[in-house]
């Protein structure tokens, strides 16, 4: 960021004076380096690099899109604590997405969209910001609009329960990078799920209105549950939450998601990608 000159007299008038002079003091710096720098990304023998990359892309896209959706709650949640909680969960998922997209790019560089020569955009950003909606591999569940707080809670509950069960199995994956991402992600997903589970219980036992809205929200999310696959471990946990809350599993038909995505993904991507696409040579 360029240096901003301020008159000395202005310094007392503006709380922002001085903030822009030198941004090196920002805790996070401004450089976003390769999240896998220094990690051995050799694909192990017996693992198909393209299959591994496609799989990591799918897992990374799920995390990226849900992270983007959850971050829409920032400054809009029912209270400050939930605002911060949802932002924290979004940040964890964004971290998982970065690692997984970087892993996908390292395993199969042909997946990464071509950018103008000399572009400083790292491969995981190229995957996030320069692919079109049809190239995203996420489940429809994560791209649907947030809805009300109950819908958000139901989605986080169902998504993190299935992802946690999957990551538990991935801790035995032959690829060391994916294995490490899974081990790390497990701990995060466990408290995302607990957070959503507790709110589920609170809304179920709250008022008639909160209960009504929770049940309606669950029915919405339930219709997309098939996208996450059959998973006995996840189903057991969800049954436990439903039983504790006294909420019946919704009897809804699965929504057909054949053909990829809903229109909501295009709109989400338009917002998420617009700045990066306008400046493919930009340094952030």
């Amino acid at each position: 960021m360029a240096e901003v000159h301020t008159h000395e007299a202005d310094d007392h008038d503006s709380a922002y004076a001085g903030l822009l002079v030198n941004d090196a003091h920002w805790a996070f710096g401004t450089d976003f380096e390769d999240p896998l720098a220094g990690v051995d990304t050799t694909v192990p023998e017996g693992v198909d690099a393209q299959e591994l990359a496609a799989y990591c892309l799918q897992l990374g896209d799920d995390a990226l899109i849900l992270s983007q959706r959850l971050s829409e709650w920032c400054s809009r949640a029912p209270d400050l604590e939930e605002d911060i909680a949802l932002a924290n969960i979004a940040l964890d998922l964004l971290g998982q997405a970065r690692l997984l997209l970087a892993r996908a790019a390292a395993a199969d560089p042909s997946l990464v969209p071509a950018l103008p020569e000399g572009s400083p955009v790292p491969p995981e950003d190229a995957l996030a910001f320069f692919r079109s909606d049809r190239e995203f591999r996420n489940v429809c569940l994560v791209e649907l609009p947030n809805g009300d707080f109950a819908e958000t809670i139901c989605r986080v509950l169902v998504f993190s329960t299935y992802r946690l069960a999957l990551f538990q199995r991935l801790t035995a994956h032959p690829d060391a990078v994916l294995r490490a991402v899974a081990v790390k992600g497990l701990k995060e997903l466990a408290y995302h799920r607990d957070f959503a589970g507790r709110w589920f219980l609170t809304l179920a036992r709250g008022t008639e209105e909160s209960r009504r809205r929770l049940e309606a929200a669950l029915a919405q999310v339930w219709a997309y549950r098939h996208e996450l696959g059959d998973d006995q471990d996840a189903e057991v946990v969800l049954e436990q939450v439903l039983a504790t809350s006294g909420v019946a599993a919704p009897g809804v038909r699965p929504v057909s998601t054949v053909g990829g995505h809903t229109e909501h993904l295009s709109r989400l991507l338009a917002e998420m990608q617009v700045v990066a696409r306008a400046h493919p040579m930009g340094l952030w």
Binding site: A27, F28, G29, D31, F32, E33, P35, A37, L91, D92, L93, L94, G95, Q96, R98, L99, V181, K184, G185, E188
Partner: peptide, 14 residues
């Protein structure tokens, strides 16, 4: 890294 999304990693490295 402490957390997957920990934004302080690049600063630590630098």
């Amino acid at each position: 890294p402490t957390y997957s999304g920990c934004p302080a990693m690049a600063t630590m490295r630098d």
